[in-house]
Write a protein that binds this DNA or RNA. Structure first.
Length: 916
RNA sequence: GCCCGGAUGGCGAAACCGGUAGACGCGGCGGACUUAAAAUCCGCUGUCCCCAGGGACGUGCAGGUUCGAGUCCUGCUCCGGGCACCA
């Protein structure tokens, strides 16, 4: 009987749908499990990344279901965003139409996965019944002073014609298009994310990957120190944040950001021209240009002075672009003796350097001899009240000198302990069309008010023109409105960052049609919080940070109060359940395209029968075309064979054993194997156009095979380049399962031992697969199933196990395979005569007694080296093991080499005999 | 510069608490079947030495702890990622 994946998969998908197998309902009598996979953006087609992310999530959800949990595994679409608007501009398709068409196509593709999505809970963020609540959340935030409007320096993307959040700008470029952004002063809507900075730093009750936690911690960037007030000679106060208040006595000048508001007042007439010029130059530079510049310090003296509050010294105030307005207070006290940047600046402009730390175990610092700042530990000197206090490498109050300085400053009223964060409030306005409108009204008297609840949602007007700029600001019929008092007013024309929509979508899944609130407390009380969340790590400081912030804000705004009440009715303690959205997070890696171009290599050597025998291989990206016998791109390497693509042909090169290999980026002696790394580095670069289309693979091999292969071929958290040859092995496995499931099993003389041996493997496999699926180790789970396949094939060939044992093996195989390859498991399960779905069966339990080996291979080592192996009973005693080892034939000659000093017996696996 | 993660065959990868390194698969080689090829089946496949029995070496590098180290400790190298004139 042939395995026809197309027929089987389509048939079962239709049946499951018809029977509502994956509908999930609240059932307080059963334990719940909310499994969530990151919702896709409807970009047009499902790609390999979606499959790689979602099919293991689905397998995990199915596994949990078979383990007895009532599982919710929903899906939806993050449907607002720029690509839809770009399509409108480029191809004259309305964003709504483009989006809906893509969603339709992707729904079909998602169904082809055979995932247990509960489609009745689907939520789509661009539907009015969804974004009504996105707007409602904004309004709620506004009422609670979490949303506010403010003028600030923001990132403006000329390419996208909108502002962007800090999280969406990487190295001065927009993270999606890679185009540079500019800094502009603009009035925009913000969410007060920084209010939650400290709480966001704690990951105490959640199980998240270390790298994600670190990224969020880095991004939030908490620094402990003090705020110190300096007074200028014209009487203004300059507030400075410093992590080293202990070095205040060494502060010999101040530096303000060029844009700092006090610069004007400070600047003297003599310096005004120079200051204005510097400020103009700084303003003209983009963030990107500032970063690309060499780190040579530039700056201008304002002519003004301030007083150092600790010693009343008069110190000059400069401006320089190494001080950023966006960090801290935009002003610093400069301590050149103990800060690298300040030191450089002082040397550049001949400013005073006053050491205040006596380095531990070193000579006294003498200013003219210093060639660099001293940042190590020591003892405070020339520092008045804190003289003699020890200073260490510790941060904040943990450093005795810092603690002493803070105490003294607070006593004197010259400063106070302070904490500064790198993270900024979340800028959520976007000057774009295809997003959720901001439900605010600008009154004619200059005030701002929210749209009344009854008028939500503010619906996006459909009949607008797309030119590349947001049409909302030019659509009078949209803008014209009245305020709550009935006076003429204007609507806010900006829309919200689409990350806003995805910051609460898993709540909407609970009740996508619910009309009275953003979610139904009856559903939420049962399902919340999300137990397992899976998706890409690229969202570390965007979606995953925003989502945490959002839930904490929702909690504080009382959004969960009704839910908590329902929980209590059912005897569930709501305490702490609304602090974090996702209890456990796992990230998959990325599947990369296979094709890539390697670096240029220069090869010298001699030709031998059409092949070049290389005497030297050198990696040199800038080599001239005639630099060697062969010069070209490194294309492939297998052992010492290279393929090099020159301008005209693909040349085979054999690298001689004594050939010189030179790879500039890898110092020391190189060899051929290191060229491998070189190829991989190239491969990892984000090159376009190497997309593997999952639809074609599903057509050819079937969803079950694609699912299995994606789970088997990579370490899931790591990912890697796609190798199309490997999938054959997974297909073979699926076909072998088919053959095992459809084979006519006949016995020729049942062998009790063979039956027990088969069942032993079966139960070992249960234990292994169970453990691996629990821990997201798909590849070893599949490997264990393949091992079971091998054992069963042998048993089938010999035909000597009992029909009962065979039946148990086959049924167990199908159940264990069901989460991974749901269609074939279901088909074969039914062919065994079962009426009920395999997916509602109880997960098999491993019987440790059946799984236990009775005979074990015991390793016998002499001085730690394996010298013999013996088959021994698993229950062997230490004495017997030792005796057997000493008597083992192959160890005798080794024992003669000295006296037996010691025998370490670890029965039944190992005995080590120490001889000397 | 600071902070995370990593490095194991030709390739993707396994390895519980320190106890047989390389499970499982891909690829390769040899064989069977076939007119032939594909598919399928069987065997071999870390490197080196050896007629064989067997031996030596081997988890990025250098040390250390231990009867025993891929695993623990110290110091490095390289790769990937995050943050970065961050005060």
């Amino acid at each position: 009987m042939e395995y026809e994946h197309r027929d089987i998969e389509q048939r079962w998908q239709a049946t499951w749908e018809k029977e509502g197998l994956y509908r999930s309902k609240v059932d307080w009598s059963r334990p719940k499990h909310y499994a969530l996979t990151m919702l896709p953006y409807p970009s047009g087609d499902l790609h390999m990344g979606h499959w790689y992310a979602m099919t293991p999530s689905d397998a995990r959800a199915r596994y949990m279901r078979m383990k007895g949990y009532n599982v919710l595994f929903p899906i939806g679409f993050d449907a607002f965003g720029l690509p839809a608007e770009n399509a409108a501009v480029q191809r004259n398709i309305h964003p709504a139409k483009w989006t809906h068409e893509n969603i339709d196509r992707m729904r079909a593709q998602l169904r082809s996965m055979g995932a247990m999505f509960d489609w009745e809970r689907e939520a789509v963020s661009c539907y009015p019944n969804y974004y009504k609540w996105t707007e409602w959340f904004f309004k709620k935030m506004f009422e609670h002073d979490i949303a506010y409007r403010s003028e600030a320096m923001v990132n403006w993307s000329p390419t996208l014609q909108t502002v962007l959040a800090n999280e969406q700008v990487i190295d001065g470029k927009d993270e999606r298009t890679g185009q540079p952004v500019e800094q502009r002063m603009m009035e925009q809507w913000f969410f007060a994310l920084t209010k939650y900075a400290d709480e966001l730093l704690s990951f105490e009750d959640i199980d998240w990957p270390e790298p994600i936690k670190t990224m969020q911690i880095n991004w939030i960037g908490r620094s402990e120190g003090a705020e110190v007030i300096f007074v200028t000679e014209v009487g203004d106060e300059i507030v400075v944040f410093t992590t080293r208040p202990d070095t205040l006595w060494g502060a010999t000048f101040m530096v303000l950001a060029p844009e700092h508001p006090l610069v004007d007042a400070l600047t003297t007439d003599e310096q005004r021209a120079a200051v204005d010029e510097y400020r103009k130059a700084a303003a003209a530079q983009s963030e990107l240009e500032r970063m690309e510049e060499s780190r040579e310090k530039t700056g201008v003296f304002t002519g003004g002075y301030a007083v150092n509050p600790v010693n009343q010294e008069r110190i000059p105030v400069w401006i320089a672009d190494y001080v950023l307005l966006s960090y801290g207070t935009g002003a610093i006290m400069a301590v050149p003796a103990h800060d690298e940047r300040d030191f450089e600046f002082a040397r550049q402009f001949g400013l005073q350097i006053s050491p205040v730390i006596q380095p531990a175990g070193r000579d006294e610092l003498v200013e003219p001899e210093m060639t660099e700042s001293y940042v190590g530990p020591g003892v405070m000197v020339n520092s008045g009240p804190i003289n003699g206090v020890e200073t260490t490498d510790a941060k904040g109050r943990a450093n005795p000198s810092v603690a002493a300085a803070i105490d003294w400053l607070e006593e004197q009223g010259a400063g106070r302990e302070a904490i500064n964060y790198r993270v900024r409030d979340w800028l959520i306005s976007r000057q774009r069309y295809w997003g959720s409108p901001i439900p605010m009204i600008h009154r004619s008297d200059g005030g701002i008010e929210a749209v009344a609840d009854g008028d939500l949602p503010v619906v996006l007007p459909e009949d607008v023109e797309f030119t590349g700029r947001s049409p909302l600001g030019e659509t009078e019929s949209f803008l014209e409105t009245t305020d709550s008092a009935g006076r003429p007013a204007r609507r806010e024309s900006d829309t919200m960052d689409t990350f806003m929509c995805s910051s609460w979508y898993w709540f909407r899944y609970l009740s996508p049609d619910y009309d009275e609130a953003s979610f139904d407390p009856q559903e939420a009380a049962y399902w919340l919080p999300v137990d397992v969340y899976t998706g890409g790590a690229e969202h570390a400081v965007m979606h995953l940070l925003y989502a945490r912030f959002f839930v904490k804000a929702m909690r504080d705004m009382g959004v969960f109060d009704d839910t908590a009440a329902v929980m209590e009715q059912h005897g569930r303690d709501p305490d702490g359940l609304f602090d974090e959205p996702f209890l456990l997070l796992r990230n998959q890696g990325q599947v990369l395209g296979a094709e890539r171009i390697g670096d240029t290599v220069v090869i010298d050597g001699d030709w031998d029968q059409g092949r070049l025998i290389a005497s030297s291989v050198r990696v040199d990206p800038e080599a001239a075309p005639d630099a060697g016998v062969v010069v070209g791109e490194l294309w492939r390497r297998t052992e010492n064979l290279l393929q090099v693509k020159t301008a005209t042909e693909l040349v085979g090169v054999e690298v001689a054993p004594d050939a010189a290999v030179e790879i500039p980026t890898i110092p020391g002696s190189n060899d051929v194997t290191q060229l491998k790394h070189h190829l991989e580095i190239q491969r990892m670069s984000k090159s376009k156009g190497n997309v593997v289309n999952p639809d074609a693979l599903v057509q050819e091999f079937g969803a079950d095979t694609v699912r299995t292969h994606l789970m088997f071929a990579f370490e899931w958290q790591k990912g890697g380049p796609w190798d199309e040859r490997g999938i054959a092995g997974s297909r073979r496995f699926i076909e072998d399962v088919w053959k095992l499931g459809t084979a006519l099993y006949s016995t020729e003389g049942v062998d009790q031992a063979a039956s027990l041996a088969l069942l032993r493997t079966v139960h070992q496999t249960i234990a292994k697969v169970d453990e691996d699926l629990a821990e997201f180790k798909w590849n070893t789970a599949v490997a264990a199933l393949m091992t079971l396949r091998n054992t069963m094939q042998d048993a089938l060939r010999v035909g000597n196990v009992s029909p009962e044992a065979w039946r148990e093996a086959v049924e167990t195989l199908f159940k264990l395979l069901a989460p991974i390859a749901p269609h074939i498991a279901e088909e074969l399960w039914h062919r065994l005569g079962h009426e009920e779905s395999v997916h509602v069966q109880a997960w098999p339990e491993a019987d440790p007694e059946i799984a236990a080996e009775d005979v074990v291979t015991m390793v016998i080592q002499v001085n730690g080296k394996v010298r013999d192996r013996l088959d021994v009973p698993a229950a062997i005693s230490a004495e017997d093991a030792e005796a057997a080892a000493l008597a083992a034939e192959k160890v005798q000659s080794w024992l003669k080499q000295g006296e037996v000093r010691k025998v370490i017996a670890r029965p039944p696996k190992l005995v080590n005999i120490v001889v000397s």
